[in-house]
Simulated assay, not measured.
Amino acid sequence: MFENTSPNRLNILQAFDRLLTIMDELREQCPWDRKQTMESLRHLTIEEMYELSDSILEGNMAEVKKELGDLILHIVFYARIASETNTFDIADVLNAICDKLISRHPHIYGTVKADTEEQVKQNWEQLKLKEGNKSVLAGVPSSLPALVKAMRIQEKARGAGFDWEEKTQVWEKVEEEMQEFKEAFNSEQEIDSKEAEGEFGDLLFSLVNYARFVDINPETALERTNKKFIKRFTYLEEEAKKAGKNLQDMTLAEMDIYWEKAKKQK
């Protein structure tokens, strides 16, 4: 197995050991750190993940470094809490992921052949089934945001060989779902909200599927659009305020003038 004995590796190990020492000291001496449980840390960890995601989308490497540090702290914190009841410690966590990576990469650590990314993914899903998963979809967390979950479900299904062959087929499905959604609202009878919601869900799912086929991450795409809208709307608010205007008193046409200017801002 590959071994890295460079001076930088020693620095990395020393830095990690320093974090473990600080964590031990805080857990034993700080009133706040002593009080924490896995349950109390959970929502904070989720918040840190979203902050890391924001930093990545903004391309702010200084913030990415900071947020990665926060996440590593949380991992060490959970392991320290578990070690207090002899459930597991950080060494168990690290060895478990190492063992998992080795077993899931038989094309590197075994005799299995996998020359493409797709073959690697298929092998990965098959190995998970052999390890006891009853379904290839069992590894998709139920608490994932719906858009991310749709992407992961489709990726898992593809790993099992259940997928469209051409992107044109996927787009035809998008158009089919769009038509069904339109029909749910164009009916002369009273709109069935549950049916309309179901058709809208089908449409979103098919759009996520198409995005996957053209190598677009729908979560990233939507979040970039969210940020773009926030930036432009904030510009609209600021410019209207400078002009002594209140958005509630402006017409849509008046607001659209500022909106078009906002679109030209970098």
Rank of each mutant, 00 (worst) to 15 (best):
K261F: 04
I102P: 04
L147Y: 02
L71D: 09
W164F: 13
Q154Y: 15
N133C: 09
I22W: 06
E238R: 11
E180T: 10
I72R: 01
N4I: 12
E117M: 11
I257V: 06
K100S: 12
E260S: 04
H107P: 08
Y78A: 08
A114M: 10
Y210G: 04
Y78L: 14
P31L: 05
I12L: 07
G69K: 15
F77G: 00
E3K: 10
E118W: 07
I81A: 03
L247C: 03
V93D: 05
L137T: 11
T234F: 13
K65I: 10
M38H: 11
K261P: 00
K242F: 12
A196H: 05
M49R: 02
E219N: 13
H107M: 12
K228I: 06
E188P: 06
E254Y: 13
I230H: 01
N226T: 15
T37A: 06
I12K: 03
K35G: 01
G110E: 01
E188Q: 04
M250Q: 06
L26C: 05
L44G: 15
A114W: 08
M250T: 12
E63W: 02
V140F: 04
K241I: 11
E166T: 07
F162G: 00
T45L: 14
R18M: 14
I108K: 03
G244S: 10
N133S: 10
L137V: 10
N11C: 13
D17W: 03
K182A: 14
M49V: 08
R104W: 09
F77T: 06
M178A: 07
V174T: 01
L71I: 15
I56A: 07
E118M: 09
M61A: 04
M151G: 01
E237L: 09
Q154G: 15
A91Q: 11
D89V: 02
C30V: 07
T225W: 13
V64M: 09
K156T: 09
A79K: 03
A15H: 06
N246Q: 14
L127S: 09
Q36M: 13
L13C: 13
F2M: 03
E39Q: 13
P7M: 08
A184C: 06
A211I: 05
E238Y: 10
H105Y: 05
K156N: 08
V208I: 04
P141M: 10
L68D: 13
N186K: 14
L10F: 11
A91T: 13
E254T: 12
L203T: 05
L207P: 00
T37N: 05
L71H: 09
Q154K: 15
F205V: 10
N86F: 03
K182L: 15
T220C: 07
K113G: 03
G59N: 04
W259F: 09
L10T: 11
T85F: 02
A96Y: 01
Q179D: 08
Q29C: 14
E237K: 03
M38D: 08
W259I: 06
K182V: 15
I72W: 02
D256W: 09
H74W: 10
